[in-house]
């Protein structure tokens, strides 16, 4: 895709916005629609768009495949780790109330939900990118006419 000047310019402008929107969907998931899963998919879509426009090799420089293993495990560990922390603080597994001790306002719930959904975001985003990399790497890049 060397000749698509408009696509390249527009996506250079759009990709950061897509990532920021994904983060908004995650951190605003308590108040509006969305959450970690949707945010992860949106962030992964930004990476996929980059790969579609600039090629898979350039994308693997920008988002190295080594991040995928780290991100996948970090997500699950973050989720389970939140549960273990609540355990250690004396509550039940994934009982977020003990994260912040406040008798009249459940502030721990907010914190716990954000942390847990952050784990979901990491896992979903990296797994989606992993699947795309795994499929996309099996054939060499093809020119536009071959579609």
């Amino acid at each position: 895709m060397n000749s698509h000047l408009i696509l390249r310019t527009v996506s250079k402008f759009l990709i950061p916005l897509i990532v920021v929107y994904g983060l908004y969907v995650h951190f605003h998931g308590d108040f509006g629609p969305g959450g970690g899963f949707q945010a992860g998919v949106i962030v992964a879509a930004a990476v996929v768009l980059y790969a579609l426009i600039f090629g898979l090799d350039a994308c693997k420089v920008a988002v190295p495949p080594s991040w995928i293993r780290i991100g996948m495990t970090t997500g699950v560990l973050l989720y389970v780790g939140t549960g273990v922390v609540t355990w250690l603080l004396g509550g039940a597994f994934l009982d977020y109330d003990v994260l912040r001790n406040n008798p009249d306002h459940p502030a721990g719930q907010h914190l716990g939900i954000i942390l847990v959904e952050l784990g979901v975001l990491f896992t979903v985003a990296t797994v989606m990118v992993a699947i795309f990399y795994a499929f996309g790497s099996r054939t060499p890049d093809i020119s536009d006419e071959d579609w």
Binding site: M72, V80, P106, I113, V124, V127, A130
Partner: peptide
């Protein structure tokens, strides 16, 4: 929970175990 979006409250707080298992399922798929 005091979270305005009840869907998020149910998914992440009341059904935290389910969502954890879902995350693990996605991890296994990857």
């Amino acid at each position: 929970v005091e979270v305005p979006n009840v869907v998020t409250a149910v998914l992440a707080s009341y059904r935290g175990y389910d969502t954890m298992a879902e995350t693990v399922v996605i991890f296994m798929a990857g």
